[in-house]
Design a protein around this nucleic acid. Structure first.
Lengths: 119, 119
DNA sequence: TCTATATTCACCCATAGAGGTGAATATAGG
DNA sequence: CCTATATTCACCTCTATGGGTGAATATAGA
């Protein structure tokens, strides 16, 4: 309570929450590409793609290698580890606590439950 | 290409991209709770918490059971499966394609690389 | 019936995101 | 030096989000 911030996960999950950005990542999975090349595959403007790439870069999912005019973007899977970790941890923990709750409800009804009331 | 939308993942990743919402999920992991109870643990208003809960509910991560005045919120881990699936798939695939790319670069330099230029 | 509590609804504000256009910047290549 | 290309910067619009406040609604409980 109090400090529950983690801008790492914020940017990560925020980055992959957008369908265009997920599609850009898929595009990069088939190989490194320049901004213009990526933009050619999408119905949006070059500028818009450039902004998406900046966000992906900030999240660490994309790495930029500048050679002359050209910016070569490539994937970096490493940050996905943190995301996978969060999800796996919570997925297991929730199922666990849900099972515990069910046992609790089944075994030990606290306040008298009047199932005659509405629904 | 063209149809690359998936509002399912959009809402899912969008929901867990916010630190307050992740904290709310953590709170619910320790047991079902009402809106007021949840709000008591956070420095924001009851209304704000109510909105966050609505988004979590829309993403399917939280289930609401209304009994009289009280809304009981509980977790639903199921949607996390889709998220985990996306992440795992891409994590493995990226590492794989990265390895392939490295081999490619090492073995077969295409255009003559003049490393004498700047940087 | 009256009152207190729980929650949402209807607004307000500020900021960020997603999209666009046009100009600026930088480099490649004659 | 000049021109074409690659990218970003600066700005505009629209919508969504995160925060707030106050009123409306619904139910619990005396």
């Amino acid at each position: 309570m109090g400090e529950y911030r983690s801008s790492q996960l914020d940017e990560l999950f925020g980055a992959i929450a957008d369908p265009t950005r997920r599609a850009i990542l898929d595009r990069l999975a088939s190989g490194e590409a320049r901004v213009t090349e990526i933009a050619a595959d999408f119905p949006i403007s070059l500028n818009s793609v450039s902004k998406h790439l900046r966000m992906l870069e900030r999240a660490g999912l994309v790495v930029r290698r500048v050679r002359g005019r050209d910016h070569h973007l490539s994937l970096n899977a490493e940050p996905l580890n943190a995301a996978a970790e969060w999800i796996e941890h919570h997925r297991q923990f929730w199922e666990q606590s849900l099972a515990g709750l069910e046992q609790f409800v089944t075994r030990k009804p606290r306040k008298k439950i009047q199932r005659s009331s509405r629904q």
